[in-house]
């Protein structure tokens, strides 16, 4: 296990040692601050929020900044397998005394860490800017709401980052992985009012709707969505791993 965490460390360094690493991080913070400022200045409804934590609760999920967090997470991590192929470093990676499973798992762990980091950067920027705009005095209930929305936002970003991760493993193309991941986040906004659609990934990814607008389709609930999402993510990972493990690295 200790040895496996060193593989995760390797993957994390590959993501963060790039000079372009800071671009999405800075962008995330700047856009969160900018949106807060615009809302504070021009919107009449949000000024009733009263605190940074309740502002955070409204903005952290997929209905707020969540889609943007997901997009940046996808862009940051979609190349994690494809890049190794493009650089030729996949040979360097796979001729060590490590199974392909360990390496695949370490890469996925780095994807989750990156997504979590983007969530935290967004959360910090939203809370600080929201606090400055609406005051820092937050109640415990507001914090609980914020944390729940944060968790929902993390689930949302993770679903699409996992999808892009799988596509990267299947196609060895960063561009295709990013494209499919982004297309996925866009399909989330479409709604097909047929019963079968509740078993499709997209209407289930945004768990925030249950606390604001209610179930997108009859018969859906948070638990239902979580099960559907878990099944899809398991399929994505199984498909990606199967291909990665069996592929001839020529």
């Amino acid at each position: 296990m200790r040895n496996w965490t060193r593989l995760v460390q390797n993957e994390w360094l590959k993501l963060t040692k790039k000079r372009s690493f800071w671009v999405p991080v800075a962008m995330m913070a700047a856009i969160a601050a900018l949106i807060t400022f615009m809302l504070y200045k021009f919107s009449s409804t949000v000024s009733e929020l009263g605190s940074g934590a309740s502002y955070l609760a409204g903005m952290w999920g997929a209905s707020g900044m969540g889609q943007f967090i997901a997009i940046l997470s996808i862009v940051g991590t979609a190349g994690i397998i494809a890049q190794e192929h493009a650089q030729g470093t996949i040979k360097f990676l796979l001729i060590r005394s490590r199974s392909r499973g360990e390496i695949f798992a370490a890469k996925y762990a780095a994807v989750l860490l990156y997504t979590l980091m983007m969530m935290l950067v967004a959360g910090a920027a939203l809370y600080v800017s929201g606090g400055l705009a609406f005051g820092f005095g937050s109640t415990g209930e507001q914090w609980l709401n914020a944390l729940r929305e944060g968790a929902y936002g993390f689930v949302y970003s993770t679903v699409y980052a996992t999808m892009a991760f799988m596509i990267g493993a299947l196609t060895r193309s960063t561009g295709v992985a990013i494209g499919v991941g982004l297309a996925g986040t866009m399909f989330g906004g479409l709604m097909v009012f047929k019963d079968f659609y509740k078993y499709v990934l997209f209407p289930n990814a945004n768990l925030s709707v249950y606390s604001t607008m209610g179930p997108p389709l009859p018969g859906m609930s948070v638990g239902f969505s979580l099960i559907v999402l878990a099944v899809y993510m398991a399929l994505f990972l199984a498909a990606g791993y199967t291909v990665f493990r069996r592929r001839d690295m020529a």
Binding site: L13, K14, K17, Q87, G88, T89, K91, I95
Partner: peptide, 14 residues
């Protein structure tokens, strides 16, 4: 085994 397969490829930004 230690090996170099084709060109020695590394992470260029490191």
């Amino acid at each position: 085994v230690g090996a170099i397969i084709e060109n020695p490829e590394f992470y260029p930004y490191m």
